[in-house]
Design a protein around this nucleic acid. Structure first.
Lengths: 270, 270
DNA sequence: CCAAAAGTGTTCTTTATACACCCATGT
DNA sequence: ACATGGGTGTATAAAGAACACTTTTGG
């Protein structure tokens, strides 16, 4: 079986690595695998592995994640390709990096499938994985790039919902944004922006210097102009068992979102 | 020399392809190469080629562009990696795609270096290359992805300057934005936003119903509050030989821009 | 009733948009 | 002088930010 495949020119090996993000309700987490074999045996690394000749890199990333965690059909986006000359001691290995977003249901269903190269797996808090030096290969750089990419994308695309259950409260959504962007939002403003109501201006008459004049009074709410993008749908249900006003439960209307993007210069920016 | 390199498992070949954008002062252009060899001989394709084992994909993209056009040290960014199973008739070829931005000086210095695989080269207008079907491989998809990426990035990063000479007028800058985003901007507003002055609010007293009151009057320009980000530096020079008020010539202050990004939540969005 | 968090309203500030006006130049 | 496009100002609209008020639940 050795040396079966020959080429006229040397070829690099192709791998995929995947930065798996999960959300436990409070913090953003990253899944790491403890390597069971050399190189970097015993070190923590990203799930991933060599691309087979009959699959795309997308399929490879999905397959490797399934082999090592048991989850499939995961939301995944390509980050970029890493090709430093000495990034792998086994030789010339080029890796296409992905990030994956895991919703709570999948998050809880993950079972560590013991295998050749996976001795253990664990969810790490973001702050424990950023700028530390215990990772295999160039996986520290890949993770830092992934976080940057995730932060960029959540500011412009509705990917936060991939980290949440289909039904959620605005407060939960806000927590996802806050933990990814590492930034606090005003509760009321976040609520209004997400649900989609906004204030407006109103004209009224006023006596100025004993003369009636039209005065423009800015930014006073005008009820009839409140607008709702309809991106979040009120399910009519509320959370129960809390000792305060129960929060409404919403779900994300993806087709409504895509319709808005198509038919207008609608943006979804934070 | 044949069959010299053997591996235990089959390996895909790795290539880079580069979408080269240029600007002729009016329109955004894309550089295409007419293929001199099979496959797709005589078809137009992106400059690019096989990665050597001792170089990174970044270096490969730069080298291939230099071999085929003579220009080096070009601004280049990775787009993404394409790995469809049948994207290349020669077999399993995975390609890392880049886009490059060429400034007018380089634009005019490009010489077509006749080689094995480059029979001819030409600048195409964007609209002649989008959604047409005469390109080799999956290069149509790569170009469409590149344009989307370029549009995304110019909205948030100061990459427009890579398409221009070091010294430029605001009008020229606007033309670059307009042709990339395929959208018209208001001349005055674009100017103010770029140079960095903005209006503000002002308080003054007014007699209302025979009583003096403080009135907040919004959005009246308050000269002392005009702010200039300092990202564009007035060189003090102006264009000459035009039969109207000569435009000021600016240059981009990259270090000032990076300082702003570091020290504040400054954004550069269009 | 009270505490607590959800949801809404109010106020002020800043930015966006449309367009008008003045300015400097070559003919 | 005047046509042309550069540069600045003005008016209105919309969005953002800070925070106060109101509502609904469990104890």
């Amino acid at each position: 079986m050795k040396g079966k495949f020959t080429y006229d020119y040397p070829r690099a090996a192709l791998t995929t690595d995947c930065v798996v993000f999960g959300f436990d309700g409070e913090n953003l987490k990253i899944l790491l695998i403890k390597r069971g074999i050399e190189p970097y045996q015993g070190k923590w690394a990203l799930p991933g592995g060599f691309m087979r000749i009959e699959e795309t890199t997308d399929q490879c990333a999905q397959r490797e994640l399934k082999e090592e965690t048991g989850v499939s059909g995961v939301f995944m986006r390509q980050i970029q390709t890493f090709s430093s000359l000495n990034r792998d001691p086994r030789g010339r290995v080029v890796s296409v990096a992905y990030y994956a977003l895991i919703n709570p249901t999948l998050f809880n269903s993950i079972v560590i499938t013991a295998g050749d190269d996976a001795a253990d797996a664990r969810w790490f808090n973001l702050e424990d994985v950023v700028s530390v030096k215990f990772l295999a290969f160039d996986h520290q750089i890949i993770i830092d790039t992934a976080i940057e990419k995730l932060r960029q994308e959540i500011r412009h695309y509705p990917i936060a919902f991939e980290l949440m259950d289909e039904r959620f409260t605005i407060k939960q959504l806000q927590t996802v944004y806050e933990s990814i962007l590492d930034k606090r939002f005003d509760r009321g403003n976040f609520h209004k922006k997400m649900v989609g109501t906004s204030a407006n201006s109103i004209e009224f008459k006023m006596e100025v210097n004993n003369v009636m004049e039209d005065i423009l009074y800015y930014n006073r709410p005008r009820k009839e102009l409140k607008k709702n993008t309809g991106i979040l749908i009120d399910t009519g249900e509320v959370v129960s068992g809390v000792k305060h006003k129960p929060a409404k439960i919403y779900r994300f209307d993806r087709s409504r979102f895509e319709e808005l993007v198509r038919n207008s210069d609608f943006t979804f920016d934070f």
